[in-house]
């Protein structure tokens, strides 16, 4: 097993190098000169231009520039934002808790609804509930989530007035310094009455929107995995022994049916982070997704470069961990 882990980790190294290469090349292909982007179009003295080019390392050969860039990345230097003049890593780290909090809540929403729905659909196969679950899952899977978000805002916030339209917190009534960056925790730590409730209210709609596609995927996966397991001999044996249906399904079948589901949940990281771009844009959620889109419109290419590098790096790492966990919890692969 150790051999597998080492091999798997080693395989991600070329992916990381290629990722560095792609972001490096992509930003150089972007139309417009980086110096001009910094100095404006008024023109610049030749000496100052040469000085700036030297400062940015643009007078070096391209391969040297790439090595410098890669070296910087390895040492945590993801460049400096043109607009805010702060290090990209710092900006990312400030905004990432918002995205993480949203993604975790979305995933909880998807798991808590998706797994029971899939199990019930499988147990009542072919019945009304099964059809209903599968229809909803199909719609969820096919949902343009940016539209879904607008619909929910329209109905829940504008029409019923139940939830706030945007943002993470009711900033007029509550203010506290971020401690952990997680609004749910910070609002509790602040000891301000009602702050936690406000934080929860702000989280509801974005979590539903971001969790919709994972919910559909998890429900479908749980159902088909459960159906497979329910046909196994050991489940029939358990039934024949006279165990209650609840015990058979909940204890014997579900435990094995969940193995592929856990993998699918882990592989939702990419979906969640891609979905976060849309969800955060709709709900003005101050996370890395919205920041990434804004850095494009501001032509802040170092931010875009660093942001894509960081987001993809996180996805690669999470997928790596999921792969290894899968092998660790699934003895059939471990001994295979």
């Amino acid at each position: 097993m150790l051999k597998f882990f080492i091999r798997r980790v080693a395989l991600t190294v070329p992916t990381f190098v290629a990722l560095m290469f792609v972001t490096f090349v992509a930003v150089r292909l972007v139309p417009g000169d980086p110096i001009e982007a910094r100095t404006g179009e008024r023109g610049i003295a030749p000496e100052r231009l040469a000085q700036l080019r030297h400062q940015l390392g643009l007078d070096q050969p391209v391969w040297k520039q790439f090595l410098d860039y890669a070296n910087g990345l390895i040492h945590g230097d993801f460049g400096v934002s043109i607009v805010t003049k702060t290090p990209v890593l710092h900006e990312f780290a400030t905004l990432f808790p918002a995205t993480l909090e949203l993604s975790i809540c979305a995933l909880i929403f998807a798991v808590v609804l998706g797994i029971p729905a899939g199990v019930i659909a499988a147990v009542k196969r072919g019945g009304i509930i099964d059809h209903a679950v599968m229809t909803v899952a199909l719609a969820g899977y096919s949902m343009p989530i940016f539209w879904w978000g607008l619909l929910l805002i329209m109905f829940m916030s504008e029409y019923l007035g139940l939830t706030p339209v945007s943002g993470r917190m009711d900033l007029i009534n509550y203010y506290f310094e971020p401690v952990t960056g997680f609004m749910l925790i910070d609002s509790l730590l602040s000891d301000q009455e009602g702050a936690f409730g406000a934080a929860v209210a702000h989280l509801i709609l974005p979590s539903i929107v971001l969790g919709t596609i994972p919910l559909a995927v998890i429900a479908r996966m749980t159902r088909s995995s459960m159906l497979e397991v329910l046909g196994e001999d050991y489940v029939r044996t358990a039934r024949a022994k006279g165990l209650s249906p609840l015990r058979v399904v909940g204890l014997h079948a579900l435990r094995n049916a969940l193995i592929p589901v856990v993998t699918v949940i882990g592989l939702q990281t990419g979906t969640l982070l891609a979905g976060a771009v849309l969800t955060e844009t709709i709900f003005a959620w101050p996370g890395v997704g919205k920041w990434l889109i804004e850095s494009i419109s501001r032509r802040d290419y170092p931010a875009l470069q660093g942001g894509i590098m960081l987001i993809s790096g996180i996805v690669i790492l999470v997928n790596l961990i999921v792969d290894m966990l899968y092998v660790a919890i699934n003895p059939r692969i471990r001994h295979g």
Binding site: G270, A274, L292, Y301, I308, I311, S312, I316
Partner: peptide, 13 residues
């Protein structure tokens, strides 16, 4: 490895 929409955004950028 790159989230689909993020990659598409990079290409469009």
């Amino acid at each position: 490895a790159i989230p689909s929409l993020v990659l598409a955004i990079l290409v469009v950028a």
